[in-house]
Design a protein around this nucleic acid. Structure first.
Length: 270
DNA sequence: ACTATTTCCTGGATGC
DNA sequence: TGCATCCAGGAAATAG
């Protein structure tokens, strides 16, 4: 499941490999298209544009485009990977996988392919992308605590709310709460200053460490090279129901909050 | 203005 | 072995 660290890894890989390349042709696939912009608009915006950069914003991958021979930004191609989306850079000879929904042919002779079996991913073209919420890694402890002021919803749900924080998903929300020693069901507004400080620090630490290890490969996540990440080996609670807590050996619990499984240590988290 | 719930979608795991 | 059912979850839509 691509969350901030996985999306960051993919965006960095893409930036390294295709920055400066030019989109020669665009193919958009099939029936119920996972598009947020009309297909014709996406095709027109991408056709013959130079990719001046690729970066992450929240869980979105932003491709900055330029009209050939100009300096200013033309538009941005926005890709959200959903649950199972992948962006791959490959040779045209490579067999096209099932569930390939978009292919960009580049002047260098390579292709960028968007593959997404579960179709939760989204493609769009915009002028000036702004994420709906704050970037977790660029948010001060004070700003962070302010986001949750007066919220009655469980802290786990608040962390997943992209309008508050952009980029945190189920894995890193659980991991950050473990590091902070806070149970996922706690009402957001009930956390005290120290708990917010620990959560802010824990979240930034876990995101940074996960980026360092290339993200978590749980189901089918791979980066733009097809490489898996390694952070899943470091998970302290996510996916560890019934297994001993790495800190105190108490079995990890799993509960469902707002329809999402949430993992925590009943002894280490209050 | 919030919050909670449902829906979308497919492949893999599980159960009988 | 085969078929049905369940489950994973990001975010938009819907309901309260």
């Amino acid at each position: 499941m691509p969350e901030l660290p996985e999306v960051e890894t993919i965006a960095r890989g893409l930036a390294k490999r295709i920055t400066g390349d030019v989109i020669e042709s665009v193919w958009l696939g099939s029936k119920p298209e996972p598009l947020k912009s009309p297909a014709a608009q996406i095709e027109a915006a991408l056709q013959s544009k130079k990719i001046s950069g690729v970066r992450r914003s929240g869980k979105h991958i932003v491709f900055d485009l330029q009209a050939p021979g100009t300096k200013g930004s033309a538009a941005q191609w926005i890709v959200h990977l959903g649950m199972t989306g992948r962006l791959l850079v490959c040779s045209p000879d490579q067999e096209t996988e099932k569930h390939t929904h978009a292919v960009l042919r580049l002047e260098s002779g390579r292709e960028v392919r968007f593959v997404d079996p579960r179709r939760f991913g989204r493609l769009a073209v915009v002028e000036n992308f702004t994420p709906p919420g704050a970037e977790p890694l660029n948010t001060s402890a004070e700003q962070f605590a302010t986001l949750f002021r007066g919220r009655k919803t469980p802290i786990k749900s608040a962390l997943l709310n992209q309008k508050l924080l952009s980029g945190v998903g189920n894995i890193y929300a659980d991991e950050a709460l473990f590091r902070a020693g806070v149970r996922p069901r706690r009402r957001a507004a009930s956390l005290n200053r120290e708990e917010f400080a620990r959560l802010h620090k824990g979240l930034q630490q876990v995101l940074k460490e996960a980026i360092r290890l290339g993200g978590s490969s749980i189901s089918d996540y791979v980066d733009s090279n097809g490489e898996e990440g390694f952070f899943q080996l470091k998970h302290r609670v996510y996916g560890r129901e019934g297994l001993p807590c790495r800190r105190c050996k108490t079995p990890i619990k799993r509960v469902v909050i707002a329809g999402r499984s949430s993992h925590y240590c009943p002894k280490c988290q209050k």
